[in-house]
């Protein structure tokens, strides 16, 4: 019940932030209304990076502390981060076509995001293939660490290789209404992401309980000799 109320509040807040971005913020001088996609693209990218960083911390702490909680945190944030990364790519393409004239370029950030997506999808598939929960947590934490460390390396190497992405705009060159809309949207999405994270972790905890129960021998039938 409580979580439903929170969810409704978060959706309303998200709708409000979107309204601010789509209606209240002025059109861009060069790009017109097209730029408004940044109110979903940029928050999704920020939150994806944030969640993947959280999953890195989860992996690291699991290997150090061996508490299931950290593995659940790593797993849940990886899933949600992956969904957001999957959103960033098509949203960026939608913006790139009218602005750059192409759906895709081999720019470092685009390429890195794509590779990031494949890497994390791989870890989540890997999790499905390991039955023993302790082993699953240990192996996927080790891989999670390695993958996260690889991200900046991929980024730098592709950047050396070739480059074109739009540099970040600083808040001082943007209309204050735009900055406000962007921040509102980032927080709205963050709220939703954290909500999903908490729900997913609860679900994982219950799944683990069921798994544990099923792995126990069945109870003896009534009246049986023990």
């Amino acid at each position: 019940m409580k979580s439903k109320v929170i969810l409704i509040f978060l959706i309303l807040f998200f709708a409000f932030a979107q309204y601010w971005g789509l209606v209240r913020a002025p059109a861009d001088r060069m790009m017109g209304d097209v730029y408004r996609i940044l109110f979903v693209h940029v928050p999704a990218a920020w939150n994806a990076l944030l969640l993947l960083t959280v999953s890195f911390v989860g992996c690291l702490l699991y290997l150090l502390r061996r508490k299931e909680f950290w593995d659940r945190l790593a797993h849940s944030s990886m899933e949600i981060g992956l969904v957001l990364t999957g959103l960033v790519l098509p949203l960026g393409s939608l913006w790139a076509k009218p602005t750059w004239g192409v759906w895709w370029t081999w720019d470092p950030r685009l390429t890195t995001t794509m590779i990031l997506f494949i890497l994390y999808a791989g870890v989540l598939i890997l999790r499905q293939l390991i039955d023993d929960p302790v082993r699953r947590a240990k192996i996927s934490s080790a891989v999670g660490l390695l993958i996260y460390l690889n991200v900046p390396i991929v980024y730098l190497s592709v950047r050396w290789w070739r480059s074109l992405h739009q540099l970040q705009s600083s808040p001082s060159t943007m209309d204050p209404q735009m900055v406000l809309a962007l921040r509102l949207n980032a927080f709205a999405l963050l709220g939703l992401a954290v909500f999903f994270l908490v729900q997913r972790m609860r679900l994982l905890k219950r799944e683990a309980l069921i798994e544990e129960k099923e792995s126990l021998p069945p109870p003896l039938p009534r009246g049986a000799q023990s």
Partner: peptide, 14 residues
């Protein structure tokens, strides 16, 4: 291959 190849990207480029 699914896990290995994306990790090899920087190495391949260099």
């Amino acid at each position: 291959p699914l896990l290995l190849y994306p990790m090899l990207v920087p190495l391949l480029l260099a």
